[in-house]
Design a protein around this nucleic acid. Structure first.
Lengths: 110, 110
DNA sequence: GCTTATACCTTGACGGCTTAGGTATACATC
DNA sequence: GATGTATACCTAAGCCGTCAAGGTATAAGC
């Protein structure tokens, strides 16, 4: 299910989206998603970090160690070209899916 | 992920919704969702039947054997009172989630 | 008699998510 | 100087939903 939180499958999309204007480190990605969604989307760390590794392994993200604003070591991620393309495709797929679900939820008996 | 198909977690909601005007049998539920979503949502049988059993076990659905329009044995499902309440709650939850995802996808860098 | 559509079901593998841990550093507070 | 909080990374075990791929059986059409 998704415990109290997520409808799964959207995390990758949200992560890719968070990087569309430039690099962020993992912890920052989680915070950005949470804030931007008005704390509706929680982004557990146990889901986030594996997702980042997965996406990097697929070649959709590239990473580099650096220093955070708070002066701590942090791994910064940025979209690869493949990642940008994937973000476009997945966004379209999500919109199509969400539209389909909505049409079912709002359907009158056909 | 969801192979080629689903963002998971929505199937229960779609099933409950399909029963909101009255009983349907399992096979019909799958067809109704597929048609109503313009064939965007596929509903594999290997996901559908376990979902029905799960929902019945939770007390959200009640079932009864009968005859289909095509004159074959079929198990008809209908919403229990708990199921109706769950449908309302989950619909609200889905709307909240979809809104949150959309707000992230459309956000300008905050 | 054969195929197609209807209608039900189960099993195995896969994989994402949650829960629950763990490490380490910077900074503020007591 | 000790303690706590926020930052920042990570992993492992288990749960559970989905997919792929099988299976059974009946009605109708050719």
């Amino acid at each position: 299910m998704a415990g109290s939180n997520l409808y799964s499958g959207t995390l990758d999309l949200l992560v890719l989206r968070s990087l569309s204007w430039g690099a962020l480190h993992g912890y920052g990605i989680g915070q950005w998603i949470r804030q931007t969604s008005q704390h509706v989307l929680k982004v557990e760390e146990g889901a986030l970090y594996p997702a980042l590794h997965r996406l990097e392994k697929k070649g959709l993200l590239e990473s580099e160690w650096g220093m955070s604003e708070k002066k701590r070591q942090a791994k910064f991620y940025r979209l690869s070209e493949a990642g940008k393309a994937h973000l476009r495709d997945e966004t379209a797929r999500w919109n199509e899916h969400a539209t389909a679900v909505r049409s079912v939820l709002e359907a009158s008996r056909g």
